[in-house]
Design a protein around this nucleic acid. Structure first.
Lengths: 348, 348
DNA sequence: CTGAAAGCGCTTACAG
DNA sequence: CTGAAAGCGCTTACAG
C-alpha cells in the first residue's frame, strides 16, 4: 500500500526515470532490455505499486476524467442518458464524475466550479433553469474546458449542444390529439425558464393555431419537473366542470404525477381522457392502457454528446488548431408512438 | 483561463505563500491584513484564478472524491441507491465518480484500480458476481482505501457491508403466497454467484420447508439479472401444463421481464397467477393490478453506507487510531406490501 | 504577518 | 539505453 515510484526504483537499484519508462510500456526493443522491463513490472506488482494518477496528470496535463451534470438520476430519462454517456466515455478510457443538480442553479454552479478545479477534460451538462437575475458566470466563460450541453440549452450559451427538436415534439403530440377530434387539450410542462418547456409549449400552441383553436391559458400548467406538482395540477384539471378531453405530459416525471392523479380521480383512459406521455420508459408498455407517447431519442443523443465531447477534447489538446469557437448545435427528431391511451373523441 | 498561483502572486507583488494563505481564508486577524486578503481575493476573481485541485491533493494528501461502483444505473433500484449516495456524500463535500459494471467482474476490477489510481478517499461498491476461478485481487487487499459494500457481499470480503436480510426477504414473499394457499410457487432469481440470489432463494426454500413442501428445482430459475432472461424463463414457466399458480421475481429487472412475459402470454393476474415483485419502483402502483411486492429499504441503506464510508475515511485520516479491521456488517429488513397482484388460491 | 524553500509523486527533455 | 535534473501547481513548516 502506498508505495511510490521512488521506493520501487530504490528496491530495484534503478533510477525513477528508467522505471517510469519501463512501466509506461514503450521499452522493449532488445532482448536484454525487455527482460529488464519484465523484472521491473514483476517487482511493481510485488510491491503493489499503483501509480498516482494525480501526480501524473499534474505533470502531463492530461486528464482521463470528465464531468456529467444532470438534474436527477432517478428519472428514467436521465438515467438512460447517464448510462450511455458513461459507457461511451468509459470505452474511450475516461472516468465520469457524476453531479446531480436537482434543477438548482446554485448547486450547478458549485458543481461546475468543483469540476473545473478537478481539471476534468470536459463536461456533458444538462443545464438547470436560469436564475431570475442571471449574472453570467465569468470564470465559466473564460474557462477553456470543453462543454457539451445535452437536452437543454442554457441562455447565451456558446457551447456545443445536442438537443431535441422540441417544437416539433410538442407539435406531434398535440397534432395527434387534434386528429382524433380533441379540442380541449391540457398540457403539463416544466418551468418556462427551461428551453425544452418553452419550445414544447410553442409546438403545442402552433398545433392548436394550425387547427384554428385559441389557446386557453387555463389548460396550460407550467411548473417544476416534479411529480407532486404534476399530480396536483392534474387533479385540478380533472376536477373542472369543463374538464379537458385530452392531456399531454411533456416529461417523464410529469407523466408519473399525471398518471397518479388520473388513478386517484378514477378517470378512465382513454374513454374519458386521452393521454399522451413524453419519453419512453420501459414500464410505459406495462401499463393498461399502454401509453401513447412522444418518444425522444435520448440514448442516441447521449452517445452523440459523448463523442462530440471527445472530439472537442482532442481539438483542445492539439495546439496548432485555432479552437473553432463556433458552437455546433444539433436537434434530434422525436417520434410519436401510438398505443392505447388515446382514442377518437366521441361527438356528443 | 489557466492562471496559476504563481502568476496571481506576481501580479500582486506578493509571495505564493501569502496568497495561498489568504485564499485559504484563515487570514484576517487585523484590519490591515484583512484588507490585504480582500485585495488578494479580488485579484483572484479578476484573473479568473481557480486552484488546481490535483496539485492541492497531491500536496495535502486529502481528497474530496469518492468512487461509486454499481451494476446498472438504468435499474430503478440502483438509480435510487446512486441518488442517495451521491446526495449524502455531496452534502459532506465529496464528489462522486460513477462506475457501471454491467455485472462484469473484469470491468469492476479495472474500475477499482482506476479509482485507486485517482486516489479516491473511499468507495461504495455493489460487487459483481464472482468469476469461476476467483483469484483474489492482491492489490485490492493491500490497499488501504476504505470500502463499503452495498446490497451485495463479495466472497471473502473483509470490508464493511450494508446489506438486506435476504433470507428473510425471500421468506416473506414466499410465506405470503403459502398463506394464500399456493403450493406451486415459481421463483426467478439472479445467478447463484451473487450473495443476494443465494440467500433469497434460501428464504424461499425455508418457507416451503416450513409448509412441508418439497422444493421443485424446475420451478426455480437462476439466471443473469437481465429482463430478457427473465422474460424467456417466465414464458417457459407459463407454457407448462402444470403451470405454477404463483411467481416471485426477486429483483427489479426480473420483475420487468416477468411482467412482459405475463402480458405476452395473456395470463391474468391475480386470477390465473399470483405475482410478487421485489423492490418498490414508483411505477409498481401505476400498474393494474398494482403489484404486491417485497419492498427493500435501499434508500436508507444507501444513506447508511455513505455515512459509514465517511466514518471510515475520517478514521483512516486520524493517525493515532489503530484502524479497526473488524468489518461492520449490518442487514436491513425487507417488508411485504400487499397490493392487488396476489390472491387466495381457489381450490379446484 | 511574510517569504524562501522544500516537497507531494510523477514525466520528460537533456546529456552521457 | 540510462540517470540527474527540472518542473507540473500547490501547501506548509521554518526563519525572519
Amino acid at each position: 500500500m502506498g508505495s511510490t515510484l521512488k521506493e520501487l526504483s530504490k528496491s530495484l537499484g534503478l533510477s525513477t526515470s528508467t522505471v517510469s519508462r519501463a512501466l509506461s510500456g514503450r521499452e522493449f526493443k532488445r532482448g536484454t532490455t525487455r527482460a529488464q522491463a519484465e523484472r521491473i513490472m514483476a517487482q511493481a506488482t510485488q510491491l503493489g505499486y499503483e501509480p498516482n494518477g494525480l501526480a501524473r496528470s499534474l505533470k502531463t496535463k492530461r486528464r482521463q476524467v470528465v464531468g456529467l451534470i444532470i438534474p436527477d438520476i432517478k428519472n428514467d430519462y436521465y438515467a438512460a442518458a447517464a448510462t450511455l454517456v458513461q459507457t461511451t466515455l468509459g470505452e474511450a478510457g475516461y472516468q465520469v464524475i457524476l453531479c446531480v443538480t436537482n434543477d438548482d442553479p446554485e448547486a450547478e454552479a458549485a458543481q461546475r466550479r468543483l469540476l473545473r478545479e478537478e481539471r476534468v477534460a470536459g463536461m456533458v451538462v444538462v443545464p438547470s433553469p436560469h436564475q431570475r437575475n442571471g449574472r453570467v458566470q465569468e470564470n465559466a466563460l473564460r474557462s477553456s474546458t470543453p462543454i457539451i450541453e445535452l437536452v437543454r440549452r442554457s441562455r447565451d450559451s456558446s457551447t456545443d449542444a445536442v438537443l431535441i427538436d422540441d417544437v416539433d415534439a410538442g407539435w406531434q403530440g398535440t397534432r395527434h390529439l387534434l386528429d382524433l377530434g380533441h379540442r380541449r387539450i391540457a398540457v403539463l410542462t416544466g418551468p418556462r425558464s427551461v428551453s425544452t418547456s418553452r419550445l414544447r409549449l410553442n409546438g403545442y400552441c402552433d398545433a392548436l393555431a394550425s387547427a384554428g383553436i385559441a389557446v386557453d391559458e387555463s389548460l396550460i400548467h407550467a411548473g417544476p419537473y416534479r411529480r407532486d406538482a404534476a399530480l396536483r395540477a392534474t387533479l385540478t384539471l380533472l376536477a373542472r366542470d369543463d374538464r379537458p378531453t385530452a392531456l399531454i405530459a411533456t416529461s417523464n416525471e410529469l407523466v408519473v404525477g399525471a398518471l397518479q392523479a388520473i388513478m386517484q380521480s378514477n378517470v378512465r383512459v382513454p374513454d374519458e381522457l386521452s393521454f399522451v406521455g413524453f419519453g419512453n420508459a420501459d414500464w410505459f408498455t406495462l401499463l393498461r392502457p399502454a401509453l401513447t407517447t412522444v418518444a425522444l431519442p435520448i440514448e442516441n443523443m447521449a452517445i452523440v454528446a459523448a463523442h462530440q465531447l471527445l472530439t472537442r477534447i482532442r481539438l483542445a489538446d492539439s495546439p496548432g488548431v485555432p479552437t473553432t469557437k463556433t458552437p455546433v448545435v444539433s436537434r434530434y427528431q422525436a417520434h410519436l408512438i401510438v398505443r392505447d391511451s388515446t382514442r377518437q373523441l366521441e361527438m356528443s
